[in-house]
Write a protein that binds this DNA or RNA. Structure first.
Lengths: 338, 338
DNA sequence: ATGGTCTGATAGAACGTTATATCAAAGAGT
DNA sequence: ACTCTTTGATATAACGTTCTATCAGACCAT
């Protein structure tokens, strides 16, 4: 079967040169004649040599691996953001690996610690709900370059996020302009800063229209939960004619719920989402939503982290990306009652 | 701000003991008196010592990190499988990080190499389309314990997969029993072993019923592609009354396409999916599908890898999990024509 | 010839940890 | 009093790489 794991030493022996020579060839540094370079490369490929980055990083103190710590990677929006970030990082020779906290801050602690121990060059991080000060201290004491996204957590850490309040205000204005007066906010469970901002935008738009009938209807941001929630909401408040949703998943679930109840989204009840995931345009009826470009967000995220790695002492930055109203089929004027 | 990063040496100096003593205290091994143990721990906490796992793993050759290399982590089914596997691995003290090949075998090569470089204890792997023999050699040379899943690639590597032929045969039998005679197979693009097996099952069921009208209609396994594909399929072959799909995503897309064309899935055209992702039961109409328990698959996967890590010389195993027909609303008897 | 620069390679130490072997001192058994 | 074992600690060498310094030889100018 296979022999021993190939090392610089075994490649050196096979090529008849010294260990440092092989090292220089592999990294393209130093002065090496074309002749020996060829011989070394040939030997290395034949032996399936793979550089041991643990040893290399230990010696050099540098790392080309970055860690992504996220609350839910299976969420389509998150997945696309990650894709964008990973793409950018790959062009710069970095490799990104992903851990999923599932919004459990104990698991999150273990994962961050593991990344620090493994000497990651930097971290992209969506802080879990209930993240404690101690976690921030951990990152700070080890000086790991970190960028949070979506959920800001501390002013001393770089952040890339969304103009949440602006977006929900736009969404609510759209519904108000269509003539809706009973508009609920659907989705989210705990009061994260993101949800707080989104609700603030929703409230401010209502206030501008002289309405104070804010109605918050919590729900996990998943399709099944959205489906169940809209049904209960309709039962208890039949006069609600429109909902602003905390995310596309809950919005799509709500649409399904309405259909099951014999109602047509966009005619009987208007629904507006947040994110513009792929499903939003494919599902029937197509979802009106506040679109964010996840690729754009992801690239900005990667770029910010690279800048931070290069200039560790720069003051923390904060970038906010606007969401854009995309009108499709789930919003329309309310039916005349009576 | 803070001084140098603390090492075993600095802790040892602070506690007035030798380096190996500190190492033993930190790991709880060896014979250490309670008195010195206290002194060492005190010094370590005061200096905020954190073990450098790169150095530790390099010396000991052991690792508690698992790598997952998958073709598309954002796919809901894959995401749930991963969740199951990660859960199991975490109970055993392992940490799993994920890379996404996007079915690009060049990227896959880089990623596998990176995991090998980083000295992962083991790999869970969905081989990308077009994976070359050279890639297998790479893994073999380095002896990294590996378990493939979903897509088998080599008999010498542990594999956990599905009884694909059995499942599509069951699905096709279901449609035949309902009275369908023109049944197409929708989805998949390249002839992976998975798709080959699924098509074989579909064909064998048709053959048993004395039919030889197999119709293959390729499509990427995404919702938008499924939507577009069913429309073209209906246009060119209006007599097709049922489709067996390569996956739930393409099946759900097909349902959306039928609805847009004014047809009702389950009445006008029957659709049957594969996987039973969360959306399958939530969408309207609810999708009939061949259900696989992703959690079960994930746990089996994790268990298999742990076994392999513990017993590297066991012969390769192959586990196959059956899919179960879940009948919902997208399958029914064909309408009487004329 | 002499000294100076350039080229291509190597020797040896170092990174922070753990494995192996050793060792002094103290207790235990005959 | 002598070996034998146990206890608690240490010295030394490794893991695989990269960094720093050095070196032999070729080339060149004077």
């Amino acid at each position: 079967m296979g022999g021993e794991k190939p090392t610089l030493a075994s490649v050196a022996k096979a090529a008849g040169v010294s260990v440092p020579t092989v090292s220089q060839v592999m990294r393209g540094t130093g002065r090496i004649s074309e002749q020996t370079r060829q011989r070394v490369i040939e030997a290395a490929t034949k032996l399936h040599y793979v550089r041991n980055s643990r040893a290399a990083e230990m010696r050099s103190g540098e790392s080309r691996e970055i860690g992504i710590v996220i609350n839910q990677f299976a969420n389509p929006f998150n997945a696309e953001v990650i894709s964008g970030a990973v793409d950018l990082l790959e062009t710069e020779g970095y490799l990104a690996s992903i851990l999923d906290t599932r919004d459990d801050h104990v698991r999150q602690w273990r994962q961050l610690e593991a990344f620090i121990r493994a000497g990651r060059a930097g971290l992209l991080w969506v802080p879990a709900q209930g993240t404690e000060q101690e976690t921030l201290d951990l990152l700070r004491t080890h000086g790991t370059p970190t960028v949070t996204f979506l959920r800001p957590v501390d002013n001393s850490i770089d952040h890339v996020g969304l103009r949440n309040a602006e977006a929900t205000a736009t969404a609510t204005h759209h519904l108000l302009a269509l003539g809706h007066r009973n508009i609920a906010y659907l989705g989210g469970t705990t009061m994260t800063s993101v949800r707080r901002d989104r609700i603030a935008g929703y409230r401010s738009a209502l206030a501008e229209a002289g309405l104070d009938r804010a109605m918050l209807w919590p729900s996990p941001d998943t399709k099944p939960a959205g489906l169940a929630s809209i049904l209960r909401l309709r039962q208890e408040h039949p006069n609600v004619t429109a909902v602003v949703c905390n995310g596309d998943m809950v919005a799509l679930g709500a649409c399904q719920g309405l259909i099951r109840a014999g109602l047509q989204p966009g005619r009987d009840v208007s629904v507006i989402g947040f994110d513009d995931i792929e499903d939003a345009s494919v599902s029937t009826p197509a979802l009106t939503t506040m679109a964010v470009s996840p690729q754009k967000l992801g690239r900005k995220l990667g770029r910010t982290l690279l800048d931070r790695i290069q200039e560790p002492d720069m003051p923390a930055t904060r970038t906010e990306i606007s969401a854009e109203l995309v009108i499709r089929d789930t919003t329309g004027s309310p039916l005349q009652r009576r």
